[in-house]
């Protein structure tokens, strides 16, 4: 194993563990912070795969913006949800989970089945063994492709962003105007 493999292994473990904590931790604020760590880990994986522009965009958009907006959302919404479940006993929590149909065995089966199916398909497939040489300047590569081959999707994405911006402001303002 080379150094890259070890670094990838470490980053992947951190990413997966923090993703696991996002789902399982009690306090929702902690879940938001674990989500930020997951985004940082994904940015590290992007870096190792040679997508340095995407890694920077990931840090800016996800770590900088989406984590912050989620924390704002948590703080502006209800207070009693901050603490989460009140079971201290692990076994009591586990049994209450497994006996309820909403949070019980079926979602677990669905998620594990989906992931297992994907892993099986991936492990059986024929994949190219060695990566191509990494593109040296991904910003130029992406910029040229965005403004030549993908110019119409690019404009559509900007319209999507504009509509989302207006929609979010309109949704958040409506209540105050009627009060």
């Amino acid at each position: 194993m080379t150094v890259t493999d070890w670094v990838f292994l470490a980053i992947a473990l951190v990413t997966l563990f923090s993703a696991y904590r996002v789902v399982t931790t009690h306090k929702i604020m902690h879940a938001a912070l674990w989500l930020g760590l997951t985004f940082v880990g994904v940015a590290g994986i992007f870096l190792l795969l040679g997508a340095d522009f995407l890694a920077a965009a990931q840090v800016l958009v996800y770590v900088g913006a989406i984590t912050t907006i989620i924390i704002f959302g948590i703080m502006l919404s209800s207070v009693e949800d901050l603490r989460g479940e009140s079971f201290d006993n692990v076994w009591k929590r586990l049994s209450s989970r497994l006996t309820s149909s909403r949070r019980g065995i079926w979602p677990l089966l669905a998620a594990v089945g989906l992931a297992a199916a994907m892993v099986i398909v991936v492990s059986r497939g024929q994949w190219p063994a060695s990566p191509h040489a990494p593109a040296l300047d991904t910003p130029r590569l992406l910029g040229e492709a965005l403004f030549t081959r993908f110019v119409i999707p690019f404009e559509a994405a900007s319209i999507v962003l504009l509509v989302a911006l207006i929609g979010a402001i309109a949704l958040a303002l409506k209540e105050e105007r009627t009060e």
């Binding site: 993703a19 696991y20 789902v23 669905a110 998620a111 594990v112």
Partner: peptide, 9 residues
């Protein structure tokens, strides 16, 4: 795939 499964769950 594992991260996808965690998110779906």
């Amino acid at each position: 795939a594992i991260m996808f499964g965690l998110g779906v769950y």
